[in-house]
Design a protein around this nucleic acid. Structure first.
Lengths: 168, 168
DNA sequence: ATCGTTGCAAACGTTTTGCATAAGG
DNA sequence: CCTTATGCAAAACGTTTGCAACGAT
């Protein structure tokens, strides 16, 4: 059975689960599939939201409880997930933010400076334009990062409503 | 006389020098124009390259010498330059990178993962596409950050040449 | 005289490391 | 059994802060 991911951007059919994919990655490099790695991959792929290391650690069992994973191991493992192509990492406000990569379509983000939400969007035109620009400059594209900052619809709606209230 | 900046992207005519602009900014807020600020603005606008705090500090006189500026003051002042609209700041590999903003046209960057150079480019089409996408999503754009990663022309040339040499 | 600015040292928040112990293959 | 992985504590990293002394207006 093939796995798929739910999201606002739709699904991408992939032939292996993240777990299977990671096992393959580990085996190909002679690395080991430990309890911690198995547990973390399960947690990380349980939901689709963007997250940083602290958010992940907060949702993990505390020290002394079953399945607790130490902070250094969380960091080490997140780096491995990136290395294995399961996650993508980017910087936002000086900290690393992770998102699903494996089995998930290419996309970019709006970043709302009011509510600090990341909103995904996808544009083929953008990719084409990117490649056209790169071609002009003889630059070999491997990928890109685009974040459009501003105010999301929800937040500008709230502002408008508050303005109306103020008049009453 | 009006000032202008040289660059691959051309010039933008501005009515004040960065120094004058900063003085105005300071005065409007009741802040003070100190020797350190005057010296730093001169250093920062002497060349057009991107730089981070350490690179700036390295090109400054060492402790004990004339015009030395302490590390905290450099950081504080860079933040003020950003606040004043003279510089733009962005994150690259976990550190803050600064570039001229005042008197300099909007642009984006290629980032070469071989030589770690940042190469500027400018595209009006990109801005239009950005705004069109944002409009669709009812997102109010304040700005954006785009970095296209890959390999620059110089580096792929070198690779090609090395391949040819290897055959000899 | 006032109040913003500086330099120092020390703190900060995030991420990484060295090392001894544990555990996967 | 061999080697990789883990947890701990401590370090590293870039950046910020508290505070007393300083200096601009």
């Amino acid at each position: 059975m093939s796995t798929s991911e739910e999201s606002s951007l739709g699904k991408v059919e992939v032939s292996m689960s993240p777990q299977e994919r990671f096992e393959e990655y580990l085996q190909s490099r002679g690395l080991r599939n430990t309890d911690q790695r198995r547990f973390l991959i399960e947690q990380v792929f349980k939901h689709h939201e963007h997250f940083d290391a602290d958010q992940l650690i907060d949702q993990l069992p505390r020290k002394g409880h079953e399945n607790h994973v130490s902070r250094p191991t969380v960091y080490r493992t997140l780096n491995e997930f990136v290395e294995a192509g399961l996650l993508r990492k980017f910087e936002l406000n000086g900290r690393s933010v992770y998102e699903h990569d494996y089995g998930y379509p290419q996309h970019d983000h709006f970043y709302c400076t009011k509510c600090h939400k990341l909103i995904e969007f996808q544009s083929d035109e953008l990719l084409q334009l990117r490649d056209a620009i790169a071609r002009e400059h003889r630059f070999r594209v491997r990928g890109h990062r685009l974040i459009i900052q501003g105010v999301c619809d929800d937040c500008s709606r709230q502002k408008r409503e508050r303005r109306v209230q103020d008049r009453v």
